[in-house]
Every structure is written in C-alpha cells, then in structure tokens.
Write a protein that binds this DNA or RNA. Structure first.
Lengths: 235, 235
DNA sequence: TGTACATCAGTGAACGCGCGTTCACTGATGTAC
DNA sequence: TGTACATCAGTGAACGCGCGTTCACTGATGTAC
C-alpha cells in the first residue's frame, strides 16, 4: 500500500533534510554550538518556523546524533563487506580503518558522538540503539570468528570459556548477550578495550595531541590496530 | 633575594587564583561554555575588571588547561611514588588508576584537556610542555624498566631493538628522544596505543557510553590496564 | 467537478535573556627623592 | 618622615552582537462530502 505522497509531505521531508544538512555545516564551521537562528537565516526563513520541524534545539541535536551513528555504522558495514568473510583480521583492519577514515572526513560528526557531550545536552534513550549498531560492526567480526572456531590464542588461557568472575563477569555476560553470545568473555573484555583504544587514538588525533609527534598518524594507527587484531585472536 | 611582596601583589595573585577557581566551578556546572561576565558577577566585580588579570577569554582557558595538565601530572607522579620503584607493573596500574580517579573526580577538567576542543578555541604552544609531563608519567615507568633491563617479552620479537621501519620508525625515534631513549621503538608504539586506550576508555565512561553495560567500569578498567601492562612487558 | 472545512507551513513581533571587549575615568596603593 | 608622581585595580557605560522559545496570525494545501 503506497500512499501517494502529497506535495506537502515531500516538501516536509525535503526541508527536514535540508535543516539537518545546514546544521552539520554549522557544526563543521562553528564547533559544538548549534544555532537554530543561524540555520533559519541560511534557509531564508524566520527562526520560529524551524519549530514545525524540530520541537527544540535538543531534538535537532538528537536527530544529528542518531544520523551520525547510523552513517558511521553503514560505513563500517560497507568496509567490512569488502573483505573476504573468513579473513577476520583483514575485516578488523578494514573496519577500524573505516572508522578513522570516517572520523577524519567529518571530525565534527565524530566529535558529536564520541567526543565530550555538548554542553547542556543530555542524550535521550533514542540514541542507544543506533550507537549499538556501531559496536556491532566490530563485535560481528568476532562473533563470526568465534562461531567458526577461528579465534586464536585462546588455548593459552587456562579457562578460555569459563566466565570471568565477579562483577565484570556479570557485565560481560549481559553485554555478550547483545553483541555476540559466542564470543568468550575474555575476548569480549578485550574487544571493549580495543574499541576504547581505537576511539581514543582517533580522538587524540582529532584534538591535535599528535601534532609534532605522529603526524600523519596513519602508520601508528595501522600498527596499533594490527596489534589489536592479534590480541583479539583474529587471523 | 626575597623581594617583599606588596599588598597589591598579594591581592593580585589571590584574585587570579579566585578567578580560575570560579571558572572551574562554572565548567563543572555549565560545561564547556565559559562566561567571563558570569565569573565577574560572582566576584561582585564589573566584567571589564577581569581584563586586568587575563587578556581575553582564551587566555583564561589556556591557564585552566595548563593548570589541569600540571595537576593531573602531579597526581600521577604522586601515585607512582607510592609503589616500589622496581615493581613496574604495579606502578603502571597505580598511575593508570590515578588517571581515571582524577578524571572521575573532575570530569570537566579532564574533558578540557582530553575531550573535544572547546568551540572556537585553539590551544597555543604553551600547553605542549605541560601535556608532555602527563605522558612522561607513563613513559617514565617504561624508561626505568627498559634501563634496568626489566622489560619482558622482547625476546619473542625478531629484532626488538631494531628501529621500526618507515615513517612510523622516524616518528618513534623522535618521540623516543623526548619520552625515553631506552624504550625500544616497538614498545614505545605500544605505549602510545596504551595511552590512547586509557584515555579512550575514560572518555567513553565520562560520556556515558557504558551506561547500562559497564557501570561501574572499575573492573573493566582494571582488567584492561592490567592487560596493557602485560602487553608492554611490565612486571 | 465544486464547495466547505480542517490542517499546517511560515510570519513577525515580542519576551527575556546572554555574551566579549573597549575606553575614558576615579581613586587607592606604591615608589623615588 | 613627607611630598610629588607613577602605577594600576576597578568602574560604568557603551558597542555590536548573539540566542531559544512562545504566540496570535495569514494564507496556502489537502480532504470529505
């Protein structure tokens, strides 16, 4: 049942997109402080008109964040699909490289989701699911490898499949249920740490902490993510 | 030669301190947007009076950043000195734990130095040296261990002391000159990655990315940093 | 196909705020003789 | 110890901006009969 879209409806989705586009342009230029009035100005509209499209400034920000997660997740999935499915280390390198590539291309969007929160803004629950899709792009590789019995190095551990003890163990079990039931808890903990490293290195680079040291940071990043693949037992 | 400090001089350093204190309070409450007028209001002064103490808003921000680096570096050094000098892994755990502890206590200050840059603010060169002191708190442990021949696991590498090849090798050599001439390049690269992980995990935690998953993140962090110590060859 | 009514996009004015920075000034504190 | 002058902290007004959000409204588009 395809309802015929009215001109009004088309105009609405069009303008909604346009507003978000201009909002992103603004983030790119002015940093985290988003101005509804400036967007309206650029649209040649009066500022109050924006309230037909977004209930408030925060609602617009939330939309941008949700889009950013989705876009990034798409980019990661796309990169993943370029590598042979059973070459897990290659997939890992492809996905981590895609993350950095996406971040360097649109640093403001990356900062929006993995930088410090925008002052005065609290992310609502709507952002949780999209954020998870990004994590899944990484955990999916491990889950596939684990299911195929292709995780290396576990034999060195005393009890690779035994649950980690204590509170961390419970947390890992719960998170594992979402991200990958077949991933051994020890590996899952390493995955979270690896994700922290990947995001951390990109954030440091974007914030200019490598200026004068590792610039460009291509090789450092490549080297680090390769070591992470080994740590995770990917091959 | 101790020049007698005049009342004026004392009042000046006192007020300078007070301004910075209020600025930090504000960062804690309002996030990254620092308002000179609000500070002046709280001091019961007229806003233009602040210009006797800081040439501009950015100058005040720079002072806060420099202080934050120095404070953090002090806290790390303090934690380091609590552990026996030749128990390198313990020192590493103490210093990484101190970093997280400091960050959780004053998240706004941590965000100031390791979060996304404040909109419209570009850090001047004055912040480089203080930032290096933080890095040194970590590299110092490795340098000590390397100098004492106590780095483990290098024997597994084909050529542990051979310089890394290519651009990364050059970068590592240069950075190594500053951070620790005795640290093998391979280990130095791992140190930078480890630092990225530590800062990355703390940033994720502060931004609320672990809510519903790893909360509290104490055990996750402890586990991750312990694995990093092993990766770095510390014992 | 035509009319009556409902929906809704966009206007324009207003409310009640905020900000950083400059500049001429007053009056207190410090210094040199 | 006392006076003349220089320094400098803080004032108050102004410049020239900015912002998010509400509200009564006009007029175009869409819908039901």
């Amino acid at each position: 049942v395809t309802r015929p879209t009215s001109a009004r409806e088309r105009a609405r989705t069009e303008l909604t997109r346009e507003i978000k586009r201009l909002a992103l342009d603004q983030l790119a230029e002015r940093g985290a402080d988003l101005s509804l009035r400036a967007i309206a100005r650029e649209l040649g509209m009066v500022s109050s008109a924006l309230y037909r499209y977004f209930g408030s400034r925060d609602e617009l920000l939330t939309a941008l964040i949700v889009d950013a997660y989705a876009d990034l997740a798409d980019a990661l999935g796309e990169a993943d699909s370029q590598a042979p499915p059973d070459r897990y280390a290659e997939r890992w390198l492809a996905v981590t490289a895609a993350l950095r590539g996406w971040a360097l291309e649109q640093p403001h969007r990356f900062a929006l989701i993995y930088g410090s929160p925008v002052p005065g803004y609290r992310a609502p629950a709507d952002t949780v699911a999209p954020a998870e899709r990004v994590m899944t792009a990484f955990s999916g590789i491990l889950e596939a490898a684990a299911a195929a019995g292709a995780l290396r190095g576990l034999e060195k551990l005393d009890h690779p499949d035994e649950p980690v003890r204590g509170r961390l163990g419970e947390q890992l079990e719960q998170v594992g249920g979402l991200l990958g039931p077949d991933i051994p808890p020890v590996t899952l903990a390493r995955l979270v740490a690896a994700f922290g490293q990947v995001v951390g290195l990109v954030n440091l680079e974007l914030a200019g902490h490598f200026v004068g040291g590792f610039e460009p940071a291509d090789d450092l990043y490549r080297n680090s993510t390769a070591e992470l693949a080994a740590t995770l037992g990917l091959r």
